[in-house]
Amino acid sequence: MTLVELAERSGVPGRTIRFYVSRGLLPGPVKAGRGATYGEEHLRRLREIASLQAAGLTLGEIAGRLGGGRDGIERLEAAAWWEYRVAADVSVHVRAGISPWRLRQIRKHVADMVSGLRKQESEERS
C-alpha cells in the first residue's frame, strides 16, 4: 500500500509515519521510489506503537523496545512524573495520571516514610 493508504488504514497521519521511520520506530518502505510501498508489517507496527504510547511510553522508549533505539534510552520507564520534596535533600517521584485512590494510598505510605525518616534523623542527632 502507499503511504496515503497506510495513513488511512492506520489513522496515523503521513507526516507522523515519516517521523517514525526517521526515528527508527518503523522500517522504511518495502519498495522505494515513486511506487514506495508499505506492507502489513508496517500496519502492525503502527498499532503496536499506538498501544505502547497509550501505556505511557515515550517514542524513545518504544524505539528501544522495538529494537531501534540506542542503549540507555530504551530502559527509561518514565511517562510524566510528579516530584515531591520529602526532606531537604530527598525527593520522591510518583507517576502522573494514576488513579486518585492509588495516589492517596501512595501518599499515605510516603507520609509514613517521611515520619520514619524524621524519627531516624532525630535518633541520629541524639
Binding site: 520522591v92 510518583v94 507517576r95 494510598q105 501512595i106 505510605h109 510516603v110 509514613d112 516514610m113
Partner: peptide
Amino acid sequence: CAPPSHFADIRCAF
C-alpha cells in the same frame, strides 16, 4: 510502608 504493587508508580524513589 508500601505494598510492592505500588512500586510501578514510584520511581527514582528516595
